[in-house]
């Protein structure tokens, strides 16, 4: 066979290459550039090697933020996943209540991050916020600007309020795809409600749960806007998560070198963890399919 070679076809790829270069590769390379150089101003850069990386990896500030970040993501997953499943199982299956329920559930998902932050920032204020003022009226000492536990509870509850719907809606879609015959067969087999959940609903939701866990993990691990608006990372550094710390370092202190190293390490951690999650869960899935 005589194949015609025509290299002009490469021109077709050019727009995509340019787009990706300008939107992703070049900005990312800038960050890499900063991470291995130092400057004393005047746009004069000096080679710094892995110095910034060593500094970040060994800094207590980074360790603390990382630990807080892990705790936060773990708490978020531990609450939102079971709660989402629970809500999905109790959502109406048919009738006029379905669309009403779906719309109400989607509302939090449609609100921009900083608006959610502002809502909760005001909601929790002791002087004018509905939540804060009610707590005060009930004699409960609640103040997210001063008390570390209160700040954490506020940030966690806010995230649960904002994102549990996503888990619930995904699970609901998973549940709706289960044919009625499964429930009928389970009743014939005399299965208890728990057995139906354990052997029919949960296995059928496995696919969507994988997506829900991945999305919620990545999102919560990158959280920035809402806690920044509500607590500003405080009191002290109590709710300073990785991204908040990163912004403080890059824009607040203008430590571009360490901040660039920080963001690369941050990116690698998310990439690694998502890969681990994905591999573990797809492996479980395959194991389920084989013997």
């Amino acid at each position: 066979m005589n194949k015609t070679w025509n290299n002009k076809a490469w021109w077709m790829v050019l727009p995509v290459v340019l787009l990706v270069a300008f939107s992703a590769v070049i900005p990312l390379m800038t960050v890499v550039n900063y991470s291995v150089q130092d400057t004393f101003g005047n746009n004069q850069f000096f080679w710094a090697g892995l110095q910034w990386f060593e500094e970040i990896v060994n800094s207590e500030r980074f360790h603390d933020a990382l630990i807080r970040q892990f705790i936060f993501s773990a708490v978020i997953l531990a609450i939102e996943i079971p709660l989402g499943i629970f809500i999905a199982m109790n959502m109406p299956k048919k009738g006029w209540a379905v669309p009403v329920c779906l719309v109400l559930m989607s509302l939090p998902l449609l609100i921009p991050w900083n608006v959610v932050g502002t809502i909760w920032q005001i909601f929790g204020r002791v002087d004018i916020g509905l939540l804060g003022a009610s707590m005060k009226a009930l004699g409960i000492d609640y103040n997210y600007t001063q008390n570390i536990a209160d700040a954490w509870i506020t940030v966690v509850v806010m995230d649960v309020w904002h994102w549990t719907s996503l888990v619930a809606l995904l699970c609901y879609a998973g549940l709706q795809s289960i044919p009625e015959a499964y429930y009928q067969a389970a009743r014939i087999d005399g299965a208890s409600t728990w057995a139906i959940f354990r052997y029919i609903q949960l296995p059928k939701m496995r696919g969507v749960l994988l997506i829900a866990v991945l999305l919620r993990f990545m999102d919560s691990f990158m959280i920035y806007t809402e806690p920044f608006v509500v607590t500003g990372g405080g009191p002290g550094n109590a709710t300073t998560f990785l991204s908040i710390d990163l912004v403080k370092m890059a824009i607040g202190q203008f430590d571009l070198g360490p901040a660039a190293a920080f963001s690369i390490i941050y990116f690698l951690i998310i990439l690694l963890l998502s890969w681990v999650f994905y591999t573990v869960m797809t492996h479980l899935d395959k194991q389920g399919q084989k013997s």
Binding site: Y182, A185, P203, G288
Partner: peptide, 11 residues
């Protein structure tokens, strides 16, 4: 009762 389409407990 046995139904038209197979129902098995996957796991």
């Amino acid at each position: 009762q046995v139904f038209q389409f197979p129902v098995v407990y996957d796991t």
